Amino acid sequence: MSIQHFRVALIPFFAAFCLPVFAHPETLVKVKDAEDQLGARVGYIELDLNSGKILESFRPEERFPMMSTFKVLLCGAVLSRVDAGQEQLGRRIHYSQNDLVEYSPVTEKHLTDGMTVRELCSAAITMSDNTAANLLLTTIGGPKELTAFLHNMGDHVTRLDRWEPELNEAIPNDERDTTMPAAMATTLRKLLTGELLTLASRQQLIDWMEADKVAGPLLRSALPAGWFIADKSGAGERGSRGIIAALGPDGKPSRIVVIYTTGSQATMDERNRQIAEIGASLIKHW
């Protein structure tokens, strides 16, 4: 067993022997301040990774656009098919120029040779490549099948209805392509620590998230040296922004954090800054 596999296998073990965790309302004060600064709703939840206990939450059962955070769930569904012998990570998928959609920095470079399922998941999570996500959605049967996968996990809230990039439209009061912070946090925890996926697939999923290259201005910008984070960000229309993450000190994750916002007129930089400040408060009061 590799060191990384050992780390993920012992996530519940280490967490069980940690000192009790206590909620700190100071972080919620910052979440509410972010709402004021952005002029928009902000949803927040913080779960203990081992027990699933909610440590703090704000608007945990209000719907927010998922945006690209759905790509972690998508690759979880792909990995479940791999575990069941219905898919192979090494299978190569070929596609054409007509398949390319807006923001496809990886797939646009491989029109000639195609990409493997493993490479597509890596591109979808680490670079948020939209064509990679659409190609992977095709392998599982489309958005409705991802929703069905989530329902089978016990998540009857999260739903995907459309493809990239239309799913980022974020129309107010439109339930399409949305989740709730509580539902997303619980589902992410199941994917990373539950028995739904094999140990190898859980490790692969967290490795992809740990290698995320496009979430630097968010929670990662607030992390002290030595902290662990595996995350996936999302951005959408109407001032929408979000991030889902597993993080913790001492090089291992111990909490799940989900943050979503929508309806702001603020710039992307300002949305990023507010999420980073929430992260800084979380870490300060850990």
Rank of each mutant, 00 (worst) to 15 (best):
residue 277 E to F: 13
residue 149 F to S: 05
residue 273 R to V: 13
residue 224 P to E: 02
residue 101 V to N: 10
residue 66 M to Q: 02
residue 174 D to N: 01
residue 224 P to Y: 14
residue 275 I to T: 13
residue 237 E to T: 09
residue 44 Y to T: 04
residue 191 L to A: 06
residue 249 P to K: 06
residue 95 Y to E: 04
residue 135 L to G: 05
residue 205 L to R: 08
residue 146 L to W: 14
residue 249 P to R: 12
residue 129 D to A: 00
residue 218 L to I: 01
residue 200 A to L: 02
residue 140 I to C: 12
residue 120 L to I: 11
residue 273 R to I: 05
residue 139 T to L: 06
residue 146 L to N: 15
residue 256 I to V: 11
residue 55 L to D: 12
residue 86 Q to D: 14
residue 244 I to H: 12
residue 110 H to L: 02
residue 93 I to Y: 01
residue 120 L to Y: 14
residue 279 G to P: 11
residue 132 A to E: 08
residue 250 D to C: 04
residue 174 D to G: 04
residue 247 L to Q: 13
residue 225 A to E: 14
residue 198 T to D: 05
residue 223 L to F: 15
residue 283 I to N: 07
residue 219 L to Q: 13
residue 128 S to L: 10
residue 67 M to D: 15
residue 66 M to F: 03
residue 261 T to W: 12
residue 87 E to A: 05
residue 97 Q to H: 08
residue 35 E to R: 10
residue 199 L to N: 08
residue 97 Q to N: 06
residue 252 K to F: 02
residue 250 D to R: 06
residue 175 E to H: 12
residue 197 L to H: 02
residue 160 L to E: 05
residue 57 S to H: 14
residue 197 L to C: 04
residue 170 A to Y: 05
residue 120 L to Q: 00
residue 172 P to D: 09
residue 87 E to C: 12
residue 254 S to T: 09
residue 205 L to V: 02
residue 70 F to I: 01
residue 204 Q to R: 03
residue 283 I to S: 07
residue 266 A to Y: 14
residue 203 Q to K: 10
residue 40 A to W: 11
residue 103 Y to N: 09
residue 201 S to Q: 15
residue 269 D to A: 03
residue 119 E to P: 15
residue 182 A to D: 07
residue 269 D to H: 12
residue 111 L to I: 01
residue 180 M to K: 04
residue 70 F to D: 12
residue 137 L to R: 15
residue 50 N to K: 05
residue 197 L to G: 07
residue 53 K to G: 12
residue 200 A to H: 15
residue 55 L to S: 09
residue 183 A to Q: 08
residue 181 P to Q: 01
residue 172 P to K: 12
residue 266 A to I: 03
residue 51 S to F: 01
residue 138 T to R: 04
residue 36 D to K: 15
residue 147 T to P: 04
residue 34 A to F: 05
residue 251 G to E: 12
residue 73 L to W: 05
residue 84 A to G: 08
residue 87 E to L: 11
residue 155 D to K: 07
residue 277 E to K: 13
residue 177 D to S: 05
residue 250 D to T: 04
residue 173 N to R: 08
residue 186 T to L: 11
residue 102 E to M: 12
residue 131 T to H: 08
residue 279 G to F: 04
residue 73 L to Y: 02
residue 261 T to E: 06
residue 281 S to R: 08
residue 39 G to R: 09
residue 130 N to M: 15
residue 57 S to V: 14
residue 159 R to N: 00
residue 50 N to L: 10
residue 195 E to K: 01
residue 189 R to Y: 02
residue 194 G to I: 12
residue 156 H to D: 12
residue 161 D to N: 12
residue 139 T to C: 07
residue 128 S to T: 06
residue 132 A to I: 02
residue 192 L to F: 02
residue 217 P to T: 12
residue 70 F to G: 02
residue 177 D to P: 04
residue 280 A to T: 10
residue 139 T to A: 02
residue 28 L to P: 13
residue 28 L to A: 13
residue 90 G to T: 02
residue 120 L to V: 06
residue 124 A to V: 11
residue 75 C to W: 02
residue 179 T to R: 03
residue 169 E to K: 03
residue 74 L to V: 12
residue 92 R to G: 04
residue 242 G to E: 04
residue 128 S to I: 09
residue 132 A to D: 02
residue 136 L to Y: 09
residue 60 P to H: 11
residue 257 V to Y: 10
residue 224 P to Q: 03
residue 71 K to A: 10
residue 238 R to C: 06
residue 247 L to A: 11
residue 281 S to I: 01
residue 253 P to L: 08
residue 256 I to L: 10
residue 145 E to I: 00
residue 247 L to I: 13
residue 96 S to E: 03
residue 282 L to N: 02
residue 84 A to N: 08
residue 273 R to P: 08
residue 40 A to N: 02
residue 206 I to H: 12
residue 230 A to Q: 13
residue 141 G to I: 01
residue 76 G to F: 09
residue 39 G to A: 10
residue 51 S to Q: 01
residue 29 V to L: 08
residue 61 E to V: 01
residue 240 S to M: 01
residue 86 Q to G: 08
residue 283 I to H: 07
residue 85 G to N: 15
residue 275 I to N: 15
residue 132 A to F: 06
residue 222 A to S: 12
residue 277 E to R: 10
residue 232 K to F: 01
residue 79 L to M: 00
residue 114 G to E: 14
residue 28 L to K: 03
residue 285 H to N: 02
residue 173 N to V: 07
residue 258 V to P: 04
residue 178 T to Y: 15
residue 269 D to N: 04
residue 184 M to R: 13
residue 279 G to H: 04
residue 278 I to Q: 15
residue 72 V to T: 10
residue 68 S to G: 00
residue 134 N to T: 05
residue 199 L to E: 09
residue 172 P to Q: 12
residue 229 I to H: 05
residue 47 L to M: 11
residue 63 R to S: 13
residue 188 L to I: 14
residue 97 Q to V: 14
residue 234 G to R: 00
residue 33 D to G: 02
residue 63 R to P: 09
residue 85 G to D: 15
residue 155 D to L: 12
residue 258 V to W: 01
residue 117 V to D: 12
residue 121 C to N: 01
residue 246 A to C: 11
residue 130 N to I: 15
residue 49 L to H: 02
residue 239 G to C: 12
residue 60 P to Y: 12
residue 75 C to Y: 01
residue 69 T to P: 08
residue 55 L to H: 05
residue 190 K to N: 12
residue 218 L to Y: 08
residue 282 L to V: 06
residue 193 T to E: 10
residue 41 R to F: 15
residue 63 R to T: 07
residue 115 M to L: 13
residue 231 D to N: 02
residue 124 A to G: 12
residue 247 L to G: 10
residue 39 G to W: 14
residue 176 R to H: 11
residue 166 E to G: 11
residue 186 T to F: 14
residue 76 G to Y: 04
residue 158 T to L: 05
residue 244 I to Y: 10
residue 140 I to N: 03
